[in-house]
């Protein structure tokens, strides 16, 4: 981060000494036109985060606007009394299982789309695109019936399968794009050296896919971690529920315990923030290659 800022910092500091001519054309925006709107928008972005942090750590009944003296009472309460400990475990299970299943299935399908020309390919690609218009929320009833027939209602497996299915199309399109970026000649060279297709894939292609797989996997995890409706509909036991459902329960009770709600919200946010910090750089530079341009 620091290294990125350093070279560009210089012209700003020395600005009065230098006439505009030496600076680059696209760099000629007055500073206040950047910092003023950015500052106002950051206020809008950060005050809500500050607010939830404030409610999570200040003692019940306090109206202080500063987050200290901090207390962990809300966290302890929500973790044990409100079962967020259980929800957390369930959410981690759903998130990780969705990540693994989505990545493996999408990797196989993405490889086929990138490396072979087969009869059903166009139809399959079309189906992938069309599925983007199918709203999971509107398929709740038939999905519920299917999982009931499979005796998967009230098991975390139903949520994992449902999340995976709706993650697959985009993941597969993205991964096939990443695989196309790996030169086919590298794989061919490995075959000539006596590798079979699987070994060549493992040794040559897989290492080069790592950044892309991290991104796709992170998306799948975050999506499954955040998503609410499938867990709400398919899991009836309280011991099976996930964090978003727990948050909703906290919100929909008659007298909302704001401290507990805030602490629960922080617990819900932590893994997502970690993942986000992890993939943020890829997000900005990589989207133009993958998601937008197809």
């Amino acid at each position: 981060m620091i290294t990125e800022i350093a070279p560009t910092a210089e012209p700003v500091v020395t600005r009065p000494a230098r006439p505009g001519k030496r600076r680059r054309a696209w760099d000629e925006v007055p500073r206040w036109q950047i910092y003023l709107p950015l500052g106002i928008y950051l206020l809008f972005t950060l005050v809500p985060f500050y607010w939830i942090l404030l409610f999570a750590v200040r003692p019940a009944g306090s109206t202080s606007l500063l987050p200290w003296p901090a207390t962990s009472e809300h966290f302890q309460k929500v973790w044990t009394e409100r079962s967020f400990g259980t929800y957390f475990t369930n959410s981690v299970y759903v998130g990780v299982a969705t990540l693994v299943l989505t990545t493996v299935v999408a990797l196989a399908g993405g490889y086929a789309l990138a490396r072979f020309d087969f009869r059903l390919k166009r139809g399959f690609m079309l189906a992938l695109l069309c599925s983007q218009f199918v709203p999971g929320a509107l398929l709740l009833v038939p999905l519920f019936q299917i999982f009931a027939n499979l005796r998967m209602i009230n098991s975390l497996g139903s949520v994992v399968v449902a999340e995976t299915v709706f993650q697959l199309p985009l993941s597969m399109i993205l991964i096939s794009g990443f695989i196309r970026n790996v030169p086919y000649s590298l794989e061919e060279a490995a075959w000539v050296d006596g590798c079979n297709r699987l070994t060549a894939f493992r040794i040559v292609v897989l290492p080069m896919l790592r950044p892309g797989l991290v991104a796709v996997g992170s998306f799948a995890f975050v999506h499954a971690w955040n998503h609410f409706l499938f867990a709400l509909m398919f899991l009836s036991d309280q011991s099976k529920q996930t964090i978003p459902v727990g948050l909703n329960t906290l919100m929909s009770s008659d007298s909302v315990d704001l401290g507990a709600l805030a602490a629960g919200g922080i617990i819900a946010a932590v893994p997502v923030v970690i993942v986000f910090a992890f993939i943020q750089k890829w997000l900005i530079t990589g989207f133009s290659a993958g998601a937008v341009k197809g």
Partner: peptide
């Protein structure tokens, strides 16, 4: 900082704004 709410879920967004 500007991008940070991107990954926040709908339910968590609700929780935050209920507090606000």
């Amino acid at each position: 900082l500007v991008f940070s709410p991107w990954a926040v879920s709908g339910v968590l967004t609700s929780a935050i704004w209920v507090l606000l």
